[in-house]
Each structure stands twice: as structure tokens, then as C-alpha cells.
Design a binder for these strands. Structure first.
Length: 290
DNA sequence: TAGTTGCCTTCGAG
DNA sequence: ACTCGAAGGCAAC
């Protein structure tokens, strides 16, 4: 199956799937293989054609955010030469609409880890607690349900090399399984409300709450600040902050909540309602400079 | 060869 | 309100 992308549906599939927003995609030859909400499928892009197998077009379009109006996004976030360059370089990179549960656990695991390790942890978790699905002669594993992880012990989860994150994953799984927090409901509420709810979960701080809000709840105003975005802001936006503040955060490797809040508010006020898109371009651009 | 740094940070003590 | 240090483990340097 394939569709032709019209000019308004600019897409850079490679950047979208490898930029580090989702962790369970792998490229074999020209095809990207992944499993989303229990469905294993493959996709490839050849200029303005998007080819896919084993997935409904509606599901795929929703997942890839193909109906997001990137022209509008770009016109809103293009505030200076630096984002302009990032946008030019990765034009067509889209924010995925990930499954909230998988996204939540992924980013709880992501703290203080690099992308390769995060992929490893999530693969271990899926192999151990998910169900195997075969497609195209390849094996995939569904992402473990909240119930499955809630019933597991923290030490079984720890065996997936999660370290101290194991107990956060377990406790969050229990909370969600017991119905204390309805993740799908967060799609409907405001960014502030969703973020506040997420912050009640163990292992979820400001950064993780912003990532989940942006990558799975459709809150495009969320502006996650990780070490790379922090570097980008210090390098290219330092004039927007007091010199003393920049000096202070450049010395330390981690941010306090109030320092995080300051960078986060700047991003949202400066870039506007699509600050999350700006964040992802800045993030990817910064990383690709090595 | 062995040691250090860094990683899409959070939590709890003081 | 703040600072500080600990918390897997692995790859890159």
C-alpha cells in the first residue's frame, strides 16, 4: 500500500523515527519496522510517496501526525536564524502521536540514560513482559501492559537493567492499573492539568511530564528541557537570560526545578503554542552537531 | 589498561 | 525556597 504525500504533508520519515522521540523503531534496508499498540508494521518513504504494509492508513496518519499543518507550525516558531536553520535542515520531522502508556514508561526509563541504553531497556522489558508477534519473518514484542508490570515484582523489572528506575516503573504501573490515573483522559484536558497529574507519579519530574505531554498527549506547547536543549539555549539564546543565570546553569550538569521552570517558560513564551515542535528541532539539530 | 565522563533526571535529606 | 549527592550500567573518550 502507498499514498502520495501532497505538498502540505511534508515528511522526513528518517528524522521523525530516529530523532529519539520514540525508541522502538529499527531500519532494515529502506524499511522502518516497528510495533505500535500491538500492531507490527513497516513503512518507507520514497520522496513524496509513503509506502506501508500491515497497517491502516488512518492509524498511520494519526501516528505520524500527518494532518499537523507544518507550514503553520513553521511560521509560528520561526523566530530567529537558529531555529530557521534547524527547521531547514530537518524539514518534515514530525512529532509522533505515541501511545501514552508506552511513552510514559519510556521516559521514566529515559532519565539519566542515553538513547542506545533506553532502547535496550525497553527491548528487555518487552521481551520479558510483552507478547511476541511475528511479521515479515521478524519477531516483535508488544509493549507490556500496566497490568503485567503491576503484577511483576520490582526485582523482575530490574532484571531488564532498569536500575533504580525499576521501582518507579512498578509503582507507576500499579497506579495506572488500579485506575488511579486515566491516561487517555489526559488527552482531553489542558497541558497544565495533564502535567500536574503526571507529576504525581513516581519517577515523573518536570522533564518527563513535558515529554509525555508532548509526544503522546498532543500538548504542543510543552517544551521539555534536557541537557541538549539546555545547551542549545545557552549557546544561542543566552541573551534572553541574565548572565549570572547562564553562568550558574553552565557549571552544573543538572537543573533544579526552578532553573528548569525558567528555561521551560522561556521556550513556551518565545516560541508560542508550538514550542514543542521548536524544541524537537533544536534538540535534534544540537545532537547532530555531535 | 584502567579510570573518567556523560547520558532526553528524579528523589529525598538537610 | 534552595543545594547536594546518590542512583544502573554502558559506551566513548
Amino acid at each position: 500500500m502507498s499514498i502520495r504525500l501532497d505538498p502540505l504533508q511534508t515528511l522526513d520519515l528518517d528524522s521523525t523515527l530516529c530523532c529519539g522521540q520514540a525508541f522502538r523503531w529499527d531500519k532494515h534496508g529502506e524499511w522502518w519496522y516497528g510495533i505500535v499498540k500491538g500492531k507490527a508494521f513497516k513503512i518507507r518513504q520514497r520522496s513524496n510517496r509513503l509506502e506501508f504494509e500491515n497497517v491502516e492508513i488512518g492509524f498511520l496518519k494519526a501516528y505520524l501526525g500527518l494532518d499537523d499543518n507544518l507550514q503553520e507550525v513553521y511560521s509560528q516558531i520561526r523566530k530567529d536564524r537558529h531555529v530557521e536553520q534547524a527547521v531547514e535542515r530537518f524539514r518534515g520531522l514530525r512529532i509522533l502521536r505515541q501511545d501514552p502508556w508506552e511513552c510514559l514508561i519510556s521516559y521514566i526509563c529515559a532519565t539519566y540514560k542515553n538513547i542506545a541504553s533506553i532502547k535496550g531497556m525497553l527491548l528487555n522489558l518487552s521481551r520479558k513482559f510483552g507478547d511476541k508477534v511475528t511479521f515479515d519473518g521478524l519477531g516483535f514484542y508488544t509493549f507490556p501492559t500496566a497490568e503485567k508490570l503491576a503484577r511483576a515484582s520490582a526485582s523482575e523489572i530490574s532484571d531488564c537493567s532498569l536500575g533504580y528506575r525499576a521501582k518507579y516503573v512498578h509503582e507507576t504501573a500499579v497506579t495506572v492499573h488500579e485506575g488511579k490515573l486515566e491516561l487517555e483522559y489526559l488527552v482531553k484536558v489542558s497541558y497544565e492539568k495533564a502535567k500536574a497529574e503526571l507529576l504525581n507519579l513516581p519517577g515523573v519530574g518536570l522533564k518527563v511530564a513535558d515529554c509525555v505531554s508532548l509526544f503522546s498527549l498532543g500538548k504542543f506547547e510543552a517544551f521539555p528541557v534536557d541537557v541538549w536543549v539546555k545547551r542549545a539555549l545557552m549557546r544561542h539564546y543566552n541573551l534572553h537570560f541574565p548572565r549570572e543565570f547562564i553562568r550558574r546553569i553552565s557549571d552544573k550538569r543538572s537543573l533544579t526545578n526552578s532553573e528548569y521552570g525558567r528555561l521551560n517558560v522561556f521556550g513556551r513564551e518565545y516560541f508560542g503554542g508550538y514550542a514543542g515542535y521548536a524544541q524537537e528541532y533544536l534538540y535534534h539539530y544540537e545532537r547532530m552537531q555531535r
